[in-house]
Design a protein around this nucleic acid. Structure first.
Length: 237
DNA sequence: ACATTAAATTCGA
DNA sequence: TCGAATTTAATGT
């Protein structure tokens, strides 16, 4: 029933033209550097619940989400403070770990069937060595992510459910970190509740409030953002 | 927890 | 391969 876990390398396939097009950093590379990346990039389909990487595992790839939704859990050993982050399409992660050639510091698993790409660590290193544009991309991404983490701490201390949902949603719509999301985020109310730490019913209520305020539109299996700036600043009336 | 609606899948031509 | 019928998933109350 559940397929045996196989590594990304083993189940790798070629990327389609559309998938390549959706990888933002490929477009900033010079032709020679892009070719280097293309020669080593791999992609695989993963099933719901499949583990992409685990805490302590050797850093083998810089991972990117082409399609679907992943969850990053940052739990210390022993069930203490656990934080979940949704990882939507367009996201690339793991560069911190790769830079230091350390082990992964979080677990990543698929929340639904997804398509995940991987750039092997050797190619990642090579691009850092020879491409200024690639360095700039990674640096910018690290900077944006730092802002996300600071914001995430604020979200966690917000007790008002509508505010938590609004700010968590706004984070997932981050255009630099998650360029694959666009105007419509594919996420169910169930999944959102799981990430934010609320019941599905309460998420539904919060989404309706946000829709009433004209900030989003609820769609079947997803949410369309109408006013991202306002969503970020949302406070209850 | 239940009713409703949307989407995905199956099946028969 | 088309579309109606059925099943599954998501939403709203």
């Amino acid at each position: 029933m559940t397929a045996p876990a196989r590594s990304l390398r083993e189940r790798a396939r070629a990327l389609t033209a559309d998938e390549l097009d959706a990888i933002a950093w490929l477009h900033v590379l010079a032709p020679g550097d892009r070719q280097l990346a293309l020669d080593s990039l791999v992609v695989a389909n993963v099933l719901t619940g499949e583990r992409i990487c685990r805490i302590g595992g050797p850093a083998t790839y810089w991972f990117g989400v082409i399609e679907g939704l992943l969850k990053m859990s940052n739990d210390g050993s022993g069930g203490a403070a656990i934080t979940f982050t949704g990882v939507p399409p367009g996201a690339w992660f793991g560069e911190g770990t790769l830079l230091k050639h350390e082990a992964y510091r979080y677990n990543i698993e698929a929340l639904r069937p997804s398509v995940v790409a991987g750039l092997p660590v050797a190619a990642f290193d090579a691009l850092l060595e020879r491409s200024i544009a690639f360095n700039r991309f990674v640096l910018n991404q690290l900077n944006e992510r730092l802002g996300q983490f600071i914001a995430a701490r604020e979200i966690d201390r917000q007790s008002h459910p509508d505010v938590r949902v609004a700010h968590s949603l706004a984070a997932l719509f981050h255009p630099v970190l998650y360029p694959g999301v666009g105007q419509v985020l594919r996420i169910t109310q169930q999944e959102l509740g799981y990430l934010v730490g609320l019941s599905r019913q309460r998420v539904n209520e919060a989404l309706r409030a946000l829709q009433g305020a004209g900030l989003i539109r609820i769609e079947y299996g997803g949410v369309r953002v109408l006013d991202l700036a306002q969503l970020r600043r949302y406070q209850p009336a």
